[in-house]
């Protein structure tokens, strides 16, 4: 076995076939995938399906708390769950860069296998291409996820937040963003802060089967909770007010962000969900979420309010001040980087 990925592994010839057989099918075999036809045939009885697609790049590809394989599967699963769907199928597009170490690819594929096994999701189609080594980076993963509503006719959209709703976050914020920056730049925070990368189906699907008061959900990945909350406020034509003191954040993440000069509200989370819910249900929801290991640090962080003439979407109470949080053009650049 070669120790590095070669261009031939994406050429469609024998190297590709061996890669697909030994690395892909050996891990992800199932009756839908195994025929390796030009397209897979899936039998979905549901009247409605949820579909999502995403591409994943991260540097480094293996980081404290996860890797790009785990990230891609968790991200796809969480996007489906955010819409109120039970994840069923995922497609796996791998774009590898020539020269990537074989053991890294194995680690990433093993992570994918672990997540889909835990979440009972099947890989149903895939593709592998290899880019010449002059391309920067080492691996890109593209996925499409398919799921069906947990309750037929019941799905969650960011436009549905209602005045008076409570805003819940299912755990500490900004851990993924800080862990990845720290691992990339060698800042030392990777000793304490691991990525929160996790699939939330086990935490949230049971809640979605019951009367829950939830009006919408958003997984606050890149762009952090600020952009996710602004998405909700804009789409719902509301204003959201959060309280800085109520937002769960690990102390090391907090002062790590201070060191880097970045606001944790803008750093990525990969295992958290923002849940907007009718306030009558908040206490019982929080109790249920906190009973799960992935939701122990969940908290009620704010409230949905009527939109005002100021046009502000997201306000944050910090001490005696109310700060208008706005989208930035791109990800804020850390002081060191």
């Amino acid at each position: 076995m070669n120790h590095k990925i070669e261009l031939a592994h994406g050429d469609g010839c024998r190297a590709t076939l061996e890669f697909v057989k030994n690395e892909i099918l050996a891990r992800f075999s199932n009756p839908i995938l195994d025929p390796c036809d030009d397209s897979s045939i899936i039998d979905i009885t549901s009247k409605e399906i949820a579909a999502t697609t995403d591409s994943y790049i991260v540097d480094p590809i293996i980081f404290p708390g996860g890797d790009i394989g785990k990230l891609s599967m968790c991200g796809t699963i969480n996007d489906l769950v955010a819409s109120g769907a039970k994840p069923l199928y995922i497609t796996l597009g791998l774009v590898l860069v020539e020269g990537i170490e074989w053991h890294q690819v194995s680690t990433i594929l093993d992570s994918i296998n672990q997540v889909i096994t835990e979440a009972n999701v099947k890989i149903i189609a895939g593709d592998t291409k290899v880019l010449p080594k002059q391309y920067q980076g080492s691996i890109i993963i593209n996925t499409t996820g398919i799921g069906i509503p947990v309750q037929q006719g019941k799905y969650y959209q960011v436009s549905q937040a209602q005045t008076g709703d409570d805003v819940i976050i299912t755990g500490t914020i900004a851990d993924h963003g800080l862990a990845v920056i720290s691992a990339r730049e060698g800042l030392g925070f990777e000793q304490k802060i691991k990525s929160d990368c996790a699939h939330l189906d086990e935490l949230l699907l049971p809640i979605l089967t019951q009367e829950n008061g939830i009006t919408c959900m958003r997984d606050p990945t890149r762009g952090g909770i600020s952009n996710a909350l602004i998405d909700i406020a804009e789409s719902s034509q509301k204003q959201i007010e959060i309280d800085w003191d109520l937002i769960p954040i690990q102390p090391e993440t907090k002062f790590g962000c201070e060191m880097l000069g970045i606001d944790p509200l803008f750093l990525a989370n990969e295992g958290k969900m923002i849940i907007v819910t009718n306030s009558n249900y908040s206490a019982s929801l929080l109790k249920q979420i906190r009973a799960h290991p992935l939701g122990v640090a969940s908290a009620l962080i704010g409230k949905v309010k009527k939109k005002t003439d100021t046009g502000m979407d997201l306000l944050m109470v910090k001490g005696r001040k109310k700060i208008n949080i706005q989208r930035t053009w791109g990800m804020p650049i850390p002081r060191l980087c």
């Binding site: 730049e185 060698g186 800042l187 030392g188 925070f189 000793q191 304490k192 090391e252 790590g256 060191m259 002081r335 060191l336």
Partner: peptide, 15 residues
């Protein structure tokens, strides 16, 4: 101080 001293101090403290 604001780069290698600060990050090394943090790393050492975490260890």
């Amino acid at each position: 101080t604001q780069l290698c001293i600060m990050t090394t101090a943090a790393d050492a403290s975490f260890r």
